[in-house]
């Protein structure tokens, strides 16, 4: 089976890209494919706690992130320097299990996968 890495680099509510990236990850997991998610650059904003989307207009992205584990996506990877650069408090996030990676570990993660889905 080919391994897929979804790299999600955009913030959650400004455009639909982050949501549609997560939907692709959920679909891959539902089809029992080997899929991992890496959040970096503005993509780390998806992890922010206390997201309060406008009821009836915006759907919660944090809820989709939380659904990943249920679909069998055990690990969400995130790029630590991206969070640090943005002053994101990594102690208070909307999901619990995140594996933080430095630059070298991101390079390693990319080289360990057969395909990249770039969002």
């Amino acid at each position: 089976m080919k391994s897929l890495l979804c790299i999600s680099r955009h913030s959650p509510y400004g455009t639909a890209i982050a949501r549609e990236a997560l939907e692709a990850v959920l679909a891959a997991a539902a089809f029992e494919q080997n899929i991992a998610l890496l959040l970096m650059d503005d993509g780390v904003w998806q992890l922010k706690d206390q997201q309060q989307p406008i009821a009836g207009i915006q759907k919660s992205l944090a809820r989709n992130l939380n659904a990943l584990e249920m679909f069998g996506v055990d690990t969400v990877y995130a790029h630590q320097p991206s969070a640090q650069k943005r002053g994101l408090n990594t102690a208070e996030l909307c999901i619990e299990s995140i594996e933080w990676l430095d630059d070298d570990q991101v390079r390693q993660l990319i080289s360990n996968h057969d395909h990249l889905l770039s969002f």
């Binding site: 080919k2 897929l4 692709a24 679909a27 539902a30 089809f31 889905l117």
Partner: peptide, 15 residues
């Protein structure tokens, strides 16, 4: 559906 993207990635050399 999105399953077609997942199937295609499994069947292709390059994505």
């Amino acid at each position: 559906g999105l399953g077609q993207l997942i199937e295609a990635s499994a069947a292709s050399d390059r994505l």
